[in-house]
């Protein structure tokens, strides 16, 4: 055991015994009459573009028509059943090769109505760098996966806490210069969200 660890634990052993109970997480947390609509509204508010698709085929069509796809040269798609001419991420040896990635498409596991965030993990994404290095990001979410609030999300059992995962809400942004909001800081310049309505 390292010296510092021993010392820190010894100091902590002298901690006075105050017992504060760990609170339960159940509660009267916000509910929406239409979580999908709320999700779309919130996402638009935080500068994402939202598109509604009727099924997978429609989704493919929508993606191919996106503005960011017009001039895109390097496109990579990690979402299943979306037919887009794409680079195969798992065949890329080093994430640095993604430097010129124009559009990256992935599928989210959960959407949250209260904050417009989508949970994406790296289960199907060989290089998580793609999510952040790409100029434009497209996230697909099924309407049935949209929950009311974050507490519901964490207790849904869908999130995998043995690997990398990230809430993504809107395109990257900064207001570090005089509080002027600028979209496109270091990560994606745009975020298109495709909501696939219940099939």
């Amino acid at each position: 055991m390292s010296n510092a660890k021993t010392k820190i634990l010894a100091r902590l052993a002298g901690q006075s015994d105050i017992s504060v109970e760990l609170p339960k997480l159940t509660g009267d947390w916000i509910q929406y009459t239409d979580p999908v609509e709320q999700f779309c509204d919130t996402a638009i508010e935080i500068s994402a573009c939202v598109h509604l698709a009727n099924g997978r085929d429609d989704c493919t069509e929508l993606i191919n028509r996106l503005v960011c796809m017009d001039t895109a040269e390097m496109v990579c798609c990690c979402a299943a059943d979306v037919e887009v001419a794409s680079l195969v991420l798992s065949s890329v040896a080093d994430p640095h090769e993604l430097e010129l990635l124009d559009v990256f498409i992935a599928e989210g596991k959960i959407g949250v109505a209260e904050n417009g965030a989508i949970w994406v993990d790296d289960h199907d994404i060989a290089h998580r760098a793609a999510l952040f290095l790409t100029q434009h990001l497209v996230l697909i979410i099924k309407s049935g996966k949209i929950l009311n609030n974050l507490t519901e999300a964490y207790s849904s059992g869908v999130m995998d806490f043995s690997r990398f995962g990230c809430w993504i809400s809107g395109p990257s942004k900064t207001a570090d210069i005089e509080q002027s909001l600028v979209i496109g800081a270091h990560g994606a310049r745009t975020l298109d969200i495709i909501v696939i309505l219940d099939e």
Partner: peptide, 29 residues
């Protein structure tokens, strides 16, 4: 981990008035 359902709801709202930060990355390994 579910405590994040409380903290992530408070953090960005308190900090910059956003519902959540653009990226909230969970690194597990």
């Amino acid at each position: 981990v579910a405590d994040l359902g409380v903290f992530l709801r408070l953090l960005a709202r308190s900090a910059t008035g956003q519902p959540i930060t653009t990226y909230s990355s969970h690194f597990h390994g």
